[in-house]
């Protein structure tokens, strides 16, 4: 983990302890033709406060890996530690999850959706309202709290999803291709917005995507996965300075990083 240590120094005292540690994780599921290995010997460490992006070809098990980190799915073997303790069931105190599009409850308003995690735990009504409103403001949706999901655009829905993931103030935010269903422009804007929210909240983010541009633009570190069985075949430190700007996408460094990840994925499939 030489490079991790170096980056930690660069980012100062903010990043030192590991927020997530995965060791020796493998997963096998029973398919039609017997046992199918889905994930093989995954080991990774996500430092606190870091933005780590996992990329890989479709079906490589990156979403499964994320669901395991969220405690929503069990691995066949290996351990996942979050804040030093194993994750074996969903724990909203430690981990918030943002899902792909259309995961908002359509029968609840934006504000009620954001309050949902709090109401599950019977938080007092006033506190719920206060925190949900603060989150709504954080994601830039003041005044839209009373709207139902079908009255919001795709980008707005994902803002609500992010607010819902953050409302309990978990140290770690797991994001499963949150912008996959958005058009290119909205996607870029949302990426930029996410970085703003991230820098304001100092969360650890693990973000799954298959867009390489998005990966390089957002990440401190990109983990590249191979096709099934999913293994981590490369770690790429994104050395671009922060805050990131759209202009950086046109730079040589950006292009080289993107190219390196693309080569790795091509080799692996």
């Amino acid at each position: 983990m030489q490079h991790l240590a170096n980056v930690s120094e660069l980012r100062g005292a903010k990043a030192h302890a590991a927020a997530i540690e995965v060791a020796g994780l493998s997963h096998v599921y029973a398919g039609r033709e017997g046992q199918v290995p889905a994930l093989e010997d995954i080991a990774l460490t996500v430092g606190a406060g870091r933005f780590v992006v996992i990329v890989g070809p479709s079906g490589c098990g990156k979403t499964s890996l994320l669901m395991m980190m969220a405690g929503l799915r069990n691995q066949t073997s290996g351990t996942i530690l979050c804040a030093g303790r194993p994750i074996d069931a969903p724990d909203p105190d430690r981990v918030g999850v943002v899902f792909q599009e259309a995961s908002l409850f359509p029968w609840l308003t934006a504000l009620d959706n954001i309050e949902f995690p709090l109401s599950i735990r019977h938080a007092p009504r006033e506190e719920r309202r206060r925190r949900a409103n603060a989150m709504l403001e954080l994601v830039g949706l003041q005044g839209f709290g009373g709207r139902y999901p079908h009255e919001l655009s795709g980008g707005m829905k994902q803002r609500v999803s992010i607010a819902r993931g953050l409302v309990q103030d978990p140290p770690v935010l797991l994001m499963d291709e949150p912008f996959a269903a958005l058009d290119e422009q909205t996607r870029m804007t949302m990426g930029h917005e996410l970085l703003r929210i991230w820098s304001q909240t100092a969360k650890t983010v693990v973000f799954v995507t298959h867009s390489l541009t998005e990966a390089v633009y957002l990440a401190d570190e990109v983990l590249v996965m191979s096709a099934r069985p999913g293994r981590i075949i490369d770690r790429v430190d994104i050395t671009l300075p922060r805050p990131r700007t759209y202009e950086m996408m046109a730079t040589d460094v950006f292009g080289r990083l993107r190219e390196r990840i693309w080569q790795q994925i091509r080799k692996a499939t």
Binding site: A70, G71, L72, P90, D91, P92, V95, V97, F99, Q100, A102, S103, F105, F116, P117, I120, R121, Q168
Partner: peptide, 14 residues
């Protein structure tokens, strides 16, 4: 009932 919605609720400890 959407499986995603069930997953969301579970992830928040329902």
């Amino acid at each position: 009932v959407k499986a995603d919605h069930v997953l969301v609720a579970r992830s928040y400890g329902a």
